[in-house]
Design a protein around this nucleic acid. Structure first.
Length: 863
RNA sequence: GCGAAAGUGGCGGAAUUGGUAGACGCGCGAGACUUAGGAUCUCGUGGGGCUUCUGCCCCGUGGGGGUUCAAGUCCCCCCUUUCGCACCA
């Protein structure tokens, strides 16, 4: 019989709610250390909670409960990132207001989260779509605007005439809309852009002191993509103008034998000569028709000659100017000097169009391939400067110095990071607090008029123009100039979904403040977030954008720390149960997929685990061992039918089981396959713990008020030590293993002393809080255990008087001896030699060395 | 192609600073209790071999070398998988 988890969980959830057990006081105490543990708040989708959500949430909940018991003032809040496209698309389909769907989805998520017993302070719940919240999102935008960090620019969007709306990049495939396959085209739109590039260096440097996964920091570094080089000016031959290029290899300037412009480059028209104009224009038209993705796909490099020439500033030579789409307008200056001898891309292009390749760095064979490594420079001198003999680093320094002196170039730092396109042509997002006067001037809405709320609408049909749906709501769009009272119109773009999630961690500190974004005293007390847990899919964008805003708020004096999230952990993905797939060929015969030709049609067949055997490294059909079978676990998805619903698990096994199992599966950061069998094992453990401590049916094991013996104390204290250290290391799986060992050991005892039972219940409580509360109550306590001190361990109890020590001869264990823990070396070695099996191996040989590592091992090395 | 992480039983996974590889759980096997069990409990469980059965030997952490008294752990080379980036001049 399973323990009555259903009654217990309902009872304690109600208790916590009624007693406001996890309410964090509003006032900042002056003598209590704080701990801010935060989950990435979810987008409340219509699909409801996924088993992936409780993984990170359980981890943070364990930490929150553990820290509370250690006396920390803990902040552990939850909220909703609720603006976004899915609600709007659903609105289009069903004509339901996104606010309604959002409210329903939030209610569903909240109900599901509450069933799992997370110790959130629900009083601090926030919702990015709440005007009281997005008032401050708008306020932050005004700060950006006033600091000149928000500007307007014409940026291309995908416009689909058929659908009458603009589409996101991922909604357009091969120039056609994902929905319906209608043709789309790129049209320029006036949009808001945030100058994140101004913070590039600070965003890069700030990473250093963060306790984040190295891979995430590296991804951010790559995204920022800082490089050092030089901008160099090339005079145009025969035209009074010059071309500016960016290069990271100014040292190879003597090897620049041609130049390339991006198809969008503004000087292209001027450079192109009449005989070539037609071909150039044709090439550009084709190139521009390709999507960004196609453009960026590496492939054959194509291009055409423009007819124009530029002058290499060091050689004085005229070099041809080409146009090619392997040069991107968005990076550097949109133009390059091509050094085919020492750049792979330029090399490929030069080979194809038969352009000269000139070696300027020794070390490779440039007839074969570009040499990009270091080496002494050659062929690199003119009357005023010589790089010959210098290696790359020195050559770069020298040529930059020379270019700067000549006024034909300068040292330059470049970033791959681009300014952040911050507007969307959508309804369900934060409106911009901006109006336009009749003569087109943009003006901020005064702070005291915030928030600019979204108007209600009855229909969600697209506006039919590239502008967003708000354009059609005339009485909202038409407003007055806050300064002059003259006619004005509102900005009809809305903010992207990232906006609300960029600063929500600050609002949790002071969610009801209508005077300020956050009270500085509270901000100073709580920030930064001590532990932030969420998926690695946010490794770059959300985490970079939030860091950017945080630094802007720091400069504005709103926050006191330069970084928002001190420690970051990404939970791994929970995959579906492992599936075994065999393949049949056209005749229906089972075959090994790798044995057949690539063009053979194979039908995958799911095979039951019982019909599988392992042979060597591979799985095969038990009946047909020559047939290999794929064993894999896949991402959970509706279409694959391998989705586990947390509600079902809670119904059948209880929330504590789900929590404990998700933590027991393996290391938090790792991807792991779901296994219902394994979960039942965890459920059995909770049942054993219940029987052990609740004394339900076995009188003799009920908790008694008697003194524990040494062995019981040792078992308990060892468990306290392991669980404590494992929680600190976030190794929740091994903490659970330690508690399982405790229960296994305790089950063999004649009695369970209260002194042992109570600390164990406390250890269990962060993991299985409902069960632990119930056991605590049955042990005679009236109040919740939430704030009862975490047990301390005493090494004195853990120490053994007699320890086992393995004895090796030449590195192989031959016996295990028992020695006193404080025995001295001679006694241990003597006992080791005396052990039967050891003596046998030592009888005919000389001992060359005796190795004794106290408490660890003895090793005799023979000749 | 570049970058990062990871390869340990039938499966998920444990193993401070190098110190008894396989903790814990699943699965599997045997037994107990039962009208029954897909409940519960006990014992066993890396592979192979010997056995006088409270014992012993050999092999074993993706593959190959190396350092060391001692390597899953450190070093070199290779293979595989996953993730991220992908013409960034």
């Amino acid at each position: 019989m399973a323990y009555p988890f259903h009654d217990i969980e309902t009872k304690w959830q109600k208790h916590w709610e009624e007693h406001q057990t996890f309410r964090t006081p509003d006032e900042v105490p002056d003598d209590t250390d704080e701990f801010y543990v935060l989950d990435m708040f979810p987008y409340p989708s219509g699909a409801g909670l996924h088993v992936g959500h409780p993984e990170g949430y359980t981890a943070t909940d364990i930490v929150a409960r553990y820290k509370r018991k250690q006396g920390f003032n803990v902040l552990h809040p939850m909220g909703w990132d609720a603006f976004g496209l899915p609600a709007e698309q659903y609105a289009l389909k069903t004509n339901t207001h996104p606010r309604e769907t959002t409210e329903e989805n939030i209610a569903q998520f909240k109900r599901q989260l509450k069933r799992l017993g997370f110790s959130y302070d629900w009083q601090r719940e926030i919702n990015t779509t709440d005007p009281d919240y997005y008032k401050w999102t708008q306020w932050i935008f005004l700060q950006l605007y006033e600091k000149g960090l928000a500007y307007q620019s014409e940026e291309p969007v995908w416009w689909c005439d058929e659908l009458g709306t603009v589409l996101a990049n991922e909604e357009v495939i091969d120039g056609k809309s994902e929905r319906g396959g209608h043709p789309c085209e790129r049209v320029p739109m006036r949009q808001w852009v945030l100058k994140i590039t101004e913070y590039a260096d600070r965003l890069l440097e700030g990473l250093e002191d963060l306790d984040w996964p190295e891979s995430t920091k590296e991804m951010q570094r790559n995204w920022i993509g800082r490089s050092e080089g030089a901008n160099v000016y090339f005079d145009l031959a025969g035209v009074d103008d010059s071309l500016e290029v960016y290069t990271t290899r100014p040292d190879t300037l003597f090897g620049a034998t041609y130049m390339v412009l991006a198809p969008e480059h503004e000087l292209l028209d001027e450079v192109t000569t009449e005989p070539h104009r037609e071909k150039v224009e044709e090439y550009c038209t084709q190139a521009l028709r390709k999507s960004e993705r196609e453009r960026q796909q590496q492939g054959d490099k194509t291009g055409v000659f423009t007819g124009g020439y530029a002058v290499n500033p060091v050689t004085g030579e005229d070099i041809p100017i080409w146009v090619a789409d392997y040069v991107l307008v968005s990076y550097g200056t949109g133009a390059i000097m091509a050094v085919p001898a020492h750049d792979e891309r330029d090399h490929a292009f030069a080979e194809r169009y038969d352009l000269p390749i000139r070696t300027v760095v020794e070390g490779g064979d440039v007839d074969q391939e570009a040499y990009v490594g270091d080496g002494p420079h050659v062929n690199s001198a003119n009357e005023n400067v010589s790089l010959n003999g210098l290696h790359n680093k020195e050559a770069k320094e020298k040529i930059i110095e020379w270019l700067e002196a000549e006024g034909t170039g300068e040292h330059t730092v470049n970033y791959q990071l681009q300014d952040w396109l911050f507007s969307r042509q959508r309804y369900w997002g934060e409106p911009f607090p901006i109006v336009f006067t009749e003569d087109g001037e943009d003006k901020p809405v005064p702070e005291e008029e915030l928030p600019v709320t979204l108007p209600d609408v009855d229909t969600f049909e697209p506006s039919g123009t590239p502008e967003g749906p708000l354009t059609t709501i005339e009485d909202w769009v038409e407003t007055t100039d806050p300064e002059t009272g003259g006619a004005a119109t509102r900005e009809t773009n809305t903010m992207p979904q990232w906006a609300g999630s960029c600063w929500y961690y600050l609002r949790f500190l002071d969610p009801d403040n209508d005077e300020q974004l956050v009270d500085p005293e509270k901000e100073e007390y709580w920030m930064p977030v001590d532990l932030y847990v969420g998926g690695s899919e946010h490794a770059v964008l959300h985490l970079l954008y939030a860091r950017f805003w945080h630094k802007v708020l720091y400069d504005a004096g709103v926050v006191s720390t330069t970084e928002p999230f001190q420690t970051l952990v990404h939970q791994g993905m929970i995959l579906g149960e492992t599936e075994y797939t065999a393949y049949r060929d056209e005749d229906g015969t089972f075959v090994s997929a790798e044995d057949v030709a690539d063009d053979t049609e194979l039908t995958p067949v799911q095979v039951d685990e019982d019909a599988i055997a392992k042979e060597g490294d591979v799985f095969v059909l038990e009946e047909r061992p020559e047939v290999q079978v794929d064993a894999r676990s896949h991402k959970m998805s509706k279409s694959r039918g391998n989705v586990i619903n947390p509600d079902d698990v809670v119904d059948e096994y209880g929330a504590d089981t789900l929590r404990l199992y998700e933590m027991f599966m393996g290391p938090l950061e790792q991807d792991k396959p779901w296994s219902t069998d394994d979960m039942e094992g965890v459920h059995r453990f909770l049942n054993r713990a219940w029987r052990l401590l609740a004394g339900a049916d076995r009188e003799e094991q009920a908790v008694r008020d008697e003194a524990p013996d040494g062995e019981q104390l040792r078992t308990l204290h060892r468990t306290i030590k392991r669980v404590t250290e494992d929680i600190e290391a976030r190794a929740f799986n091994t903490a659970i293993a330690a508690m399982m060992e405790f229960v296994n050991a305790a089950n063999k005892w004649d009695a369970m002393p209260r002194e042992i039972a109570e600390p164990f219940v406390l250890l269990l409580s962060p993991f299985a809080p409902h069960l632990a509360e119930e056991l605590w109550a049955r042990l005679g306590h009236d109040a919740s255990l939430a704030y009862v001190d975490w047990p301390a361990y005493d090494d004195e109890h853990i120490r053994r008087e007699v320890v086992e020590m393995p004895v090796q001869v030449d590195g192989t264990v031959r016996a295990t001896i028992e020695v006193d823990a404080d025995a001295d070396e001679d006694d241990v070695l003597a006992a080791a030699k005396a052990a039967d099996n050891v003596a046998r191996y030592l009888s005919d040989v000389d001992i060359q060395r005796e190795i004794y590592v106290p408490g660890q091992i003895v090793n005799f090395v023979t000749g």
